[in-house]
Design a protein around this nucleic acid. Structure first.
Lengths: 191, 191
DNA sequence: CCGCAACTGCGAACGATGTTTGCAGTTTAA
DNA sequence: TTAAACTGCAAACATCGTTCGCAGTTGCGG
């Protein structure tokens, strides 16, 4: 449901209650059960609907690694647009047709790579993990800056914060990390 | 609370209700609020209690990469012992003293590495992500094997499953991935 | 030993949640 | 026209986290 996604985008996943969604649709909560079997169903639909934003998949032109990085960038963008997607991605049932299609497209890009299916599977999982991690980077940074914690028992943490505050921007840390990881995962000489 | 962790280990996080924990302690739900301010408090305490299992931290002997891999192995073991920890790790408030101590220990190991604090921060985050991903590998594998999905629209997925089922074990995929990632993240020549 | 203040445990109740039920109202088909 | 099927939805139920208020206990100054 588009209404549910709108609520999640503005107020978070917890605000997506059956009553809230129904109210946005000017109806009662019970009416939703004519179209959904449960709230989990709704969440799955939301996840798959949003996974459709990964389209169109890039054509595998040139280097497969470049193409994969491009797809990972799309994943990161989606996770930045819909922060709640992270909470859903851990649910096994959230793997819907769109997620499978993306998975399939990744495999297609990896076709020229000589590696086992298990390795490719792992690589796609890592790609997803990296995209999520970087999408949440800003949030995580704030989490450590929040007040009220005495850092004196952690000498190295203290030293790190005492140093120059703004580090060199480390441009494209995302891409560098992803590239080195995928290369290490999918080639034999990269160990 | 040890009781709450026991419930989560056997029945999942959702089963950790105030009433369930109280029942295990032969008391009423309201009594818990003499010691906890809310359920979130309880979850934070659980996360930190379990983070203590990462101790003792290895002494930084020899190569820093070896030491980090050892610490990541410990993380993976904890996540395999307590699968629910993953759900908690996304909550900012779950960063307690034990988590900070681990973070500090990582920074200590990284002391000889010449990289910005931002890069090290990112590297620790990735390390955590990789550990979680591999801890959940078996679950994820089952998720794709589950029945009821027609894979015909996904030709590359189908081809992958049609191939030899059991791939070469890919021993130490965990360590290879981690090593290539950390090296790429923390050194300048690894791009 | 008393009396009073502070603390502790907890049954009962409140609001909110996901879900089920039952019943009107409406559409469809014979 | 009429019976069957479908649709929307208010009301009710179970369960959740949390609060309230009251007994029972403890600690302490007189």
């Amino acid at each position: 449901m588009t209404a549910a996604i709108a609520i999640a985008d503005t107020s978070g996943l917890a605000a997506v209650s059956m009553r809230a969604v129904a109210a946005r649709l000017d109806t009662g909560a019970a009416s939703l059960y004519r179209y959904l079997s449960s709230r989990d169903d709704l969440l799955d639909l939301m996840a798959d609907r949003v996974a459709a934003e990964l389209r169109p998949y890039p054509e595998p032109d040139g280097d497969w690694l470049d193409t994969l990085v491009r797809m990972a960038r799309a994943q990161r963008a989606v996770h930045e647009r819909h922060p709640w997607l992270f909470e859903l991605s851990q649910r096994a049932s959230a793997i819907g047709p769109e997620a499978l299609a993306f998975f399939d497209a990744c495999l297609k890009v990896m076709a020229p790579v000589q590696a086992s299916f298990a390795a490719k599977f792992e690589a796609i999982g890592m790609m997803n993990g990296v995209a999520i991690l970087f999408a949440r980077k800003r949030t995580a940074g704030e989490a450590l800056t929040f007040v009220g914690l005495d850092v004196t028992p952690y000498p190295h943490l203290l030293a790190a914060f005492s140093g120059p505050v703004s580090a060199p921007p480390a441009t494209d840390l995302f891409e560098r990390a992803l590239r080195s990881l995928l290369r290490g995962l999918l080639t034999t000489d990269g160990a």
